[in-house]
Structure formats: structure tokens, C-alpha cells
Amino acid sequence: MRPRSGLLATSRRTELKRAFFDSAGAGGALFPLGLAFGLLVSQAGLDWWWATIFTAIVYAGSLEFILVGLVVVAAPLSTIALTALVVNVRHVFYALSFPIHRVRSRPARFYSAYALTDEAYAITTGRPGENWTGTRIVGIQLLCQAYWVLGATIGALAGDRLGLHLPGLEFTLTALFVVLAIEAYRARRDMPTAIIALLSGLIALLLSPEHMLPIAMTLLTVGLLARFALRQRRRRGNAADATEHGGTR
């Protein structure tokens, strides 16, 4: 048994080394973004260690930025729950392609589901031909979270000790979403969805700036489902046309 376990240990080490290189790019973004988040936490008047708790437990970057804005105005927990639901509902769809079946043990699987962030999803599904092992996937996720928690903690401590105050720092979040929107659009170049989303957002803003997010997300989902139904009907119509023409010929 001894040589076998030795072999296992080496392969585990290579897999962790791979995980380190896989997550390096994301780490280059997560760490500085974490710094900005930590600084924002200290500016909001929270103790620095809340940055550590937020990033370690909630671990969903964009939601955490939004949460800081919400707790500062003492938003009710129902608003916080609804916002978490609406902002992170996209993760439901990550389950469709994330290779979690490669993660074997139950605790590792639990962690892997918990840490299924945009970054973990993008790294593991961006290269479908790659042979992903459970160790490598969980390693990537652990490293990504470490960069994020570390960045946030250092940022909050620095903001706290140096008494930094940068007005307009919360623009980091706006810019993050702008970048993600541009890249998501680039992936599909689908104008109708962009227009439906823009209209959903603007209508929701006119109706109620305070409850903008749930209203806009409902409009967006309904709009996309309507588009899907229309497309299905058109397809069925085309198929019917084709069989009809086939019959007369």
C-alpha cells in the first residue's frame, strides 16, 4: 500500500500546482478587487474584520459590494434576502455545466457547491477538453477564495488604520458590472436580450427606484421567456410549412 499512497500524494501535488496556475489570472483580479471592497467596508464605518466575515461567509463578490450599500442605510432583512436572490439567481444556471461530478468526497462537494463563483465557473468551463480532477477544482476554488478574503482584509485594515476616505469608490461595482455586461454581450452578440434588459431596467427605475432590482429581474425573465415562446412558435410554424410544401410537391 505504501508506494501507492506515495503516488497518490505526488499526483495530488501536481494537481494543486495546476490549480495554482489555473487560478493565477483570477487571483490577479480578485486580490485588488478585494482591496477595494475592504476599503469600502472601512469607509462604511464597519469594523475591519467584517470585511473578513463578509468575504469568507457570503463569498459572492458583487453581492457583497451591494450588501455594504444596503447595511449602511439599515435595509430590512427582507430586502437583503430578495437582493441576494435576485443578484445571485444566475448561479442556478452554472449548475448546468460546472463539472462537480469530478469532486468525490461529500465535504469537498459541499465546499465546491458553496464556492461556485463566477470565477470558478469561468475557469472550469472555459476549457471543456481539460481533464479536471476533484483536487484541482477544489484547489482552484480554495485559492480564489483565499485571494479574495486576503485582499478584503488587507484593504479594510489599511482603510481603518490610515483613515482613508475616497469619495466615489463604490464606482468599482458599477465598473465591474459594465465589464461583465460587455463581455457577456461579446460572447453571444445578441441584441434583443440587451434591449429587453435595458427596457426592463429603465421601466423598473421609473416604477420604483427602491424596488428596482426585483421588478427589473421579473420583467427580464418574463421578457426572455416570451421571446423563447415566440421563437418556438415560429420554428413550429416553419416546420409545418415545410411539411405542407413537401406534401404538395
Binding site: 458583487s62 443578484v87 439567481v89 444566475r90 444556471f93 458599477t174 458590472f177 459594465v178 461583465l180 455586461a181 457577456a184 454581450y185 460572447a187 453571444r188 445578441d190 436580450t193 440587451a194 429587453i196 434588459a197 435595458l198 426592463s200 431596467g201 429603465l202 423598473a204 427605475l205 428596482m212 432590482l213 427589473a216 429581474m217 427580464l220 425573465t221 426572455l224
Partner: peptide, 11 residues
């Protein structure tokens, strides 16, 4: 949805 959600979040 992903592209749509990001546009909504910008607004």
C-alpha cells in the same frame, strides 16, 4: 440571462 442580468445590475 447572464448578459441581461449584468445590464440590469449596471442600471
Amino acid at each position: 440571462l447572464p448578459a441581461g442580468i449584468m445590464i440590469v445590475l449596471v442600471l
